[in-house]
Amino acid sequence: MSILYVVSDRPGAGKTALCMGLVRTLRARSKSVAAIKPISDGEDDIDAAMYAELLGSDTRDWPVANAEDVSGGNLDEISALINGLASENDIVIVEGSNGLAGTLGRIVCDNVDAKVLVVARYDASLSHGVVLAAGAPYGGRVIGYIVNGVSQYMGTDARANLVPQIAAQASMRGARVLGLIPEDRRLLGMSVSQIAAHLDGEFISEEMEGDALVEYLMVGGMSLDPGEYYYGIHDNRAAIVRGDRPDLQMSALSAPGSTACLVATGGITPIEYVRYEAEQEETPIILVQSDTLDTMARLDSLLDSSSFSHPDKLKRSVELLEEHVDIEGLLHAL
């Protein structure tokens, strides 16, 4: 049995996506794998629900405690839970909490003899010192580092400068850089239902099966190009259009690719013909009272808080891990 404890340099670095993706990836290699997040990041932590929904994890005992309330007794209970899973599986992946002090996380790792994987969220200011500091409390238990969310235009700099600096220091401690994962539009997306809830919107179309993932927000009337060409630039899009613009709404529905939803702004219900075509295309229509500019401003805040809770995101996470992370090297280190 092997236990992998995953930590990060900051909240939002991608631990949950990485942990869930690793579970799926390792299960595909015929490994028996369990995951657990025993310590929550606060009362509004929804990760347990996501593990249950996307992986079918039994989360009834999650969390043992919130990070700020952890005590010695909690650490014993957490260790017992992890060891119990380890006795039944080849690999247990433990998602660490950013709110937990590294010294306490180290105690858990020592109790269960866990190896540690560090994930760091990339930005232009990220230094090798910050990445290494995230793993410092765990000493020789760290087996590897993954840099996540590398933007398309900064990839060369990250590979040429950041990764060699991390690797040089990590190798002296018996660890290595296991991967550099690019930023991905799908992982930054949001579901149609999340958009509707965030905007206090009303579905005025027939209820559609599933809950499509939106990767691009496209505002109608912002281009001089023909509507179908404009909307066809991006797939998995949400078209945000005034309710009294059937020309733009029809362009969004007929453009190549998929329109995940129409957002009709201004409190104006689209005409019957548009509603019929949307139903034929199985595209939900969300009616909102705010105007188009205010709607887009509100959606900006949703982008900042987008969660991992969608099966398409898990599928994409697995694809990114297979392509950009040394999974065999990780297994060997475990």
Rank of each mutant, 00 (worst) to 15 (best):
I91L: 08
L187N: 06
H198L: 10
N148K: 01
I233M: 14
D9V: 11
S309G: 15
L248P: 03
A86T: 14
S309M: 12
V92S: 02
L262M: 04
L302V: 14
V177L: 05
L217Q: 00
I91G: 02
E282Q: 13
F203V: 13
L321H: 01
S171M: 12
R186P: 05
T25C: 07
A160T: 11
R106V: 10
Y230N: 00
E88A: 14
G139Y: 04
E77M: 12
A17H: 01
E68R: 08
P137K: 09
K15E: 00
E323Y: 06
W62S: 11
N98T: 15
G155D: 05
L54Y: 03
S87M: 08
I78R: 05
D184C: 03
G201V: 04
D76T: 15
S71N: 11
R29E: 02
R24C: 05
L321W: 09
A278F: 08
D235G: 02
Q289V: 00
R237C: 01
D157L: 14
Y122S: 01
V64L: 02
L18Q: 01
G210F: 00
E215Y: 02
D69M: 02
I166E: 09
Y122D: 08
G155S: 12
D225M: 14
Q165R: 12
H310I: 09
L117E: 08
T59N: 02
V70Q: 08
V130R: 13
A167L: 05
S8C: 09
R186Q: 13
Y229K: 15
L287E: 01
A260P: 06
A197C: 10
D44F: 11
G267I: 13
L22Y: 02
E215W: 04
I195F: 03
I268R: 09
M172C: 14
A34C: 07
Y216S: 15
K315D: 11
A65F: 02
A158R: 00
T103V: 13
T16C: 03
L162M: 07
Q169Y: 13
Y273F: 12
S307V: 12
F308M: 15
T259I: 10
Y231Q: 13
P164L: 10
A238M: 02
L320G: 03
L321G: 06
R245K: 11
A239P: 04
V23R: 06
D326C: 03
G174F: 06
V23I: 08
D90E: 12
I46N: 11
L293Y: 10
G14W: 05
A168L: 11
S151Q: 09
H198K: 11
I286K: 03
I46G: 12
G105E: 03
P38V: 13
A133W: 03
S306E: 06
E322R: 00
M218G: 01
D244M: 00
R106P: 04
M208P: 07
V192L: 04
V325N: 00
E328I: 12
E202T: 13
V318N: 09
D41E: 14
D157E: 14
L248M: 09
